[in-house]
């Protein structure tokens, strides 16, 4: 008698993903679906898709999905949560969406302490539009619009969302994770599940920032992109829990 120990989670639709080979969106989608499965909340979960490559998340999750205008996913999630407080509302946003045009919605939904879950995928570049500089692009990083590397004198410095939101009193749980290795993926899985569990328990605003890759626009092979993430992004964006209001409780982080 064989037991299946690893397979596609139920909350993830059985369709091919449109993402490029080696794109870590697929891994993060699976982690979100595994969290929905683990908590048994698929029937009352509503996701909010952002703008960018991840706009097609609405085709990939079995739960209901809404598509928000660029950057406005936390505002749409606020409305959904207030209209149907028993539903579990999550947004899935990239860095070009959440950290650029959607900064105001992100900061203010945190300040209001909305009981929602945000999955923030940071790959330091605009993926869908062809690899332009994003607010999270590292100093010196080559993109389509910074062909000689991002010059902080001219283009400023990256936005660090977890550090910034940790100063907002209304936020409940902030953690930065990565998906460059099996150990880090397992940690990301725990963080995402906790962010959903916080909402189920009514604890408030939870955001998980996931450092991810964009092999196509970084111009790297998938495995080399993982290496680049490890060597360049993690030192600049340190992993860890940035805020956990309930850390002292049993089941708190770490």
């Amino acid at each position: 008698m064989a037991n299946t120990v690893f397979q596609k989670p139920h909350a993830l639709c059985d369709v091919p993903l449109h993402y490029c080979p080696g794109c870590t969106h697929g891994i993060i989608h699976r982690l979100v679906a595994e969290a929905i499965d683990a908590l048994g909340i698929e029937g009352r979960t509503v996701g909010v898709a952002s703008v960018g490559c991840s706009v097609f998340t609405y085709n990939y999750f079995e739960c209901d999905m809404v598509q928000a205008a660029h950057g406005r996913a936390p505002a749409v999630a606020t409305g959904l949560k207030r209209a149907e407080p028993n539903n579990i509302i999550f947004t899935y946003q990239g860095d070009g969406d959440l950290a650029a045009i959607g900064t105001a919605e992100t900061v203010h939904s945190a300040a209001r302490g909305e009981n929602i879950t945000i999955i923030f995928v940071n790959n330091a570049i605009y993926g869908m539009t062809g690899g332009q500089m994003a607010p999270t692009t590292l100093p010196g990083q080559v993109t389509q619009t910074t062909p000689y590397g991002r010059d902080p004198q001219y283009a400023g410095l990256p936005v660090k969302i977890c550090e910034m939101l940790s100063q907002v009193d209304g936020a409940t749980y902030l953690e930065r994770v990565a998906v460059d290795s099996v150990a880090h993926i397992n940690q990301a899985k725990r963080a995402i599940e906790k962010a959903f569990r916080n909402q189920v328990e009514g604890k408030g605003f939870s955001l998980v920032e996931v450092l991810s890759t964009c092999p196509t626009n970084w111009g790297k092979e998938p495995a080399a992109a993982m290496e680049w993430l490890r060597e360049n992004m993690i030192p600049y964006y340190p992993l860890g829990v940035y805020k956990d209001k309930y850390a002292d409780e049993k089941g708190g982080s770490k």
Partner: peptide, 19 residues
């Protein structure tokens, strides 16, 4: 160990183990 399945972005891999 399902390390391969864990890092696969496209849910290609299924692992079974003897009970």
């Amino acid at each position: 160990c399902f390390s391969c399945g864990t890092i696969c972005p496209d849910c290609v891999i299924t692992i079974e183990r003897e009970a």
